[in-house]
Design a protein around this nucleic acid. Structure first.
Lengths: 106, 106
DNA sequence: AAATTATTTTCACTTAAAGTGAAAAATTCA
DNA sequence: TGAATTTTTCACTTTAAGTGAAAATAATTT
């Protein structure tokens, strides 16, 4: 489907590929979940955009995760990328593991 | 509020303490989010129940997490406790960290 | 250039998730 | 015993997450 030479794809193609409604992609964009390139007025999704959306789909369908917490995840990602608080993110997950251990007592 | 000698508390007290509606606690019980002790027909929440619910509240309010994914979290916790797949849980989080790294390319 | 198709935008609506109100019945407490 | 609390259940409300539809616009095809 995706020719290797093609770097980005219009919305209907992507929606089709991911098995979601194109309106859903517009909706997600409202929350900056994914913000595609623009050529003129038309949206073009990069392969990385698509990869990210596949991951989101997995989180939603397999882990039951909601949009809101994924948006929180993006915030954390941004923090990592911006180098704001790498230790803090790692601490979050350490804390998470400790919480799991705590729950053993529950 | 919580006398150290008291080991468990009735629903209204707990709901009040946590700042949630008691009906919410009944609702959560339906999903086995927390299943309090029973003395006769009356529910008694242990201090550990309460701690767990505080954690749940934090996940919901701070991380925007939904009930469904928390229920998935419980499943993972159960797996840890039952010793079903300790490595698998750790792998999940390693995978998670790798995903974060992946997202640096995004 | 004209016709066709796809895209965009926006509003309103639908479905699903997550509660929450209310009331009758039962139980517990003072 | 009477009052207060709890329980249960059904119906409803609010919130979250889409999704339909249509007019306008833009892009593509003929």
């Amino acid at each position: 489907m995706f020719d290797k030479k093609d770097k980005s794809y219009p919305i209907e193609v992507v929606a089709d590929f991911l098995g979601v409604n194109s309106r859903t992609l517009y909706y997600y964009e409202k929350f900056s979940l994914v913000v595609p390139l623009r050529r003129g007025r038309k949206r073009y999704y990069s392969k990385q955009d698509i990869r990210w959306l596949e991951y989101v789909r997995e989180l939603m369908y397999e882990q039951g995760m909601n949009l809101r917490s994924i948006i929180v995840l993006i915030k954390k990602r941004d923090d990592v990328i911006l180098g704001k608080c790498p230790e803090e993110v790692v601490d979050c997950f350490k804390n998470y593991l400790m919480r799991i251990r705590d729950l053993q007592e529950y």
